[in-house]
């Protein structure tokens, strides 16, 4: 017997099903993957194109989240303005919305007959729906809220006196923002970027509705997995395995200080 204050007994037994429901499917994929054909499966034309497209679009979506999400998160954390709670709710909305609904909304906004899309087409000849740009926008729509939420919490934790102190040493507001504020939130920023990228990489519902599922054009890895599963193709397993490896890699990279940065919501 361990000496010391006792804890409630049997908690681990009750928590087993939670672990099992995650572990069993992972094991199943590992078990069923035909490892002799693994590299062949993930390097055939369809898979390679899907992988390349997924990487490109998810990185672009993450960069968009960084560029547009950072100022928004800062404003949410630091400024009081009208309808702030509405803006915040709208920012988080895509997290609770079924992604496919988001895709439909995007289609009716930026599609050829959409609210904005019709004018884009008429005035500039720009058609967004069912293009790679649409895939990027769909991923941004679904993943950006993660970035904004994490960064708002991080900016909220920044000691405003330190930013003020920096100003007294001859640094203007922009340089103080870059060297002090962004410097202080760097661990959270890294965590937010990785989390956002991972969410964008796995995006399925919004992409299939807004960008379509054209192999070689808008078919990202999750869409390729879906299509291959439909046609009973063994490559689905290999690609699933690959996604799992990537996701696990992300989590391992996030472990330690980045995860704790997320938990503390700051430095």
């Amino acid at each position: 017997m361990k000496r010391g204050l006792s804890a409630p007994r049997g908690l681990w037994l009750v928590s087993l099903p939670a672990v099992a429901i995650v572990v069993v499917p992972v094991v199943a994929v590992v078990w069923r993957t035909d490892w002799s054909k693994f590299f062949g499966s993930i390097s055939n034309d369809v898979s390679r194109t899907a992988l390349g497209l997924s990487l490109r679009t998810s990185i672009l979506a993450t960069v968009l989240a960084l560029v547009f999400g950072t100022p928004l998160a800062w404003l949410l954390a630091n400024r009081e303005f009208k309808f702030k709670s509405v803006v915040r709710a709208l920012c988080v909305l895509p997290m609770v919305l079924p992604p496919v609904v988001g895709g439909v909304a995007l289609l009716y906004a930026f599609g050829r007959r959409g609210l904005v899309g019709a004018s884009l087409d008429e005035w500039f000849g720009i058609q967004l729906a069912f293009t790679q740009t649409a895939a990027v926008l769909a991923q941004f729509f679904v993943a950006a809220p993660f970035f904004i939420l994490v960064m708002e919490a991080a900016f909220d934790q920044v000691d405003r006196r330190l930013v003020g102190a920096a100003r007294t040493f001859g640094v203007g507001p922009w340089r103080a923002f870059v060297t002090v504020t962004l410097g202080l939130v760097r661990p959270s920023l890294m965590a937010a970027l990785v989390l956002t990228w991972a969410r964008a990489l796995g995006e399925f519902g919004a992409t299939i509705a807004f960008a379509g599922n054209t192999a070689g054009r808008t078919q990202t890895v999750p869409l390729a997995v879906y299509s291959q599963l439909e046609s009973g193709d063994q490559d689905a397993l290999a690609l699933s395995m690959l996604m799992m490896i990537v996701s696990l890699g992300v989590l391992i990279a996030l472990r330690g200080r980045w995860i704790s940065a997320l938990r503390r919501g700051g430095q």
């Binding site: 330190l162 102190a165 007294t168 040493f169 001859g170 507001p173 002090v180």
Partner: peptide, 30 residues
């Protein structure tokens, strides 16, 4: 604005930037 006032402050507790080295803190803004 504070950066144009030529007023230097030793803040309570130091007010140092925790993510920068001592040297960078001393030279901050210089």
């Amino acid at each position: 604005q504070p950066e144009l006032r030529r007023v230097s402050t030793v803040f309570q507790g130091g007010g140092l930037l925790p993510h920068l080295s001592v040297e960078k803190n001393i030279l901050f803004g210089r």
